[in-house]
Amino acid sequence: MSTCPQYIVDYMHEYLDGDISREHEQQLKKHLQVCSDCQQHMHELSDTIAFVKSAAHITAPPHFEEMVMKRLPKHKNRVGVQRWFRQHPIIVAAAVFFLFMSATLLSSYPNDEFSFTAKPNLIVDGQTVIVPEGEVVEGDIVVKNGDIVIEGAVNGNVTVINGQYMASTSVVTGQIEEIDQVFEWLWYEIKDMANDFMALFEK
């Protein structure tokens, strides 16, 4: 066998792998007919394969499945949350957006400072804004942390935040609102934004 070329053994393995070319197969067959050593080698290889293939099928022990299920991590919350984030990117994006939005809205929630929309013919007395009798104010008025007394007329909306609206014989062409709560304030801001938004289209 030592005189036989190595490629004959290579061809044997190609043959056993089932990917031998027709050319190689013919060379191998020709050689095996004349060389009993190689024939023996080929037989031994085939027997080896048959030997391994005769191994009985092994099955997993009983309760194997049950044991695996017991070993699974029970509450992988972190993993669960990560997975949820991965699967719902839009909800996550919306939640983040909402978080920033509400932060912005809350930060504009009035602090304790008294302020109001400056108009030429308004009179201020302490923390009270007065629209004098006989005067007509053009446009909206917003008063924060103060009261408003209207004795004249307002050609627009009046909004009072953390304060009181007092009027007797006033004329207000727009809406009058008093806001005292955080949520009302939020609602007011959102409505305001929506109105601004609509105004863009109305132009």
């Binding site: 191994a55 092994i58 997993a60 194997f64 499945e65 070993r71």
Partner: peptide, 30 residues
């Protein structure tokens, strides 16, 4: 389970080890 256990058993040649490794493989897959 049977295929996986068989691979492990043939590789390791020991039933207890094969069972342990096959279970571990499923847990890692999970």
């Amino acid at each position: 389970q049977h295929k996986l256990y068989q691979i492990c058993y043939r590789m390791l040649g020991n039933k207890q080890e094969a069972e342990d490794i096959a279970q571990e493989a499923f847990v890692r897959a999970y």
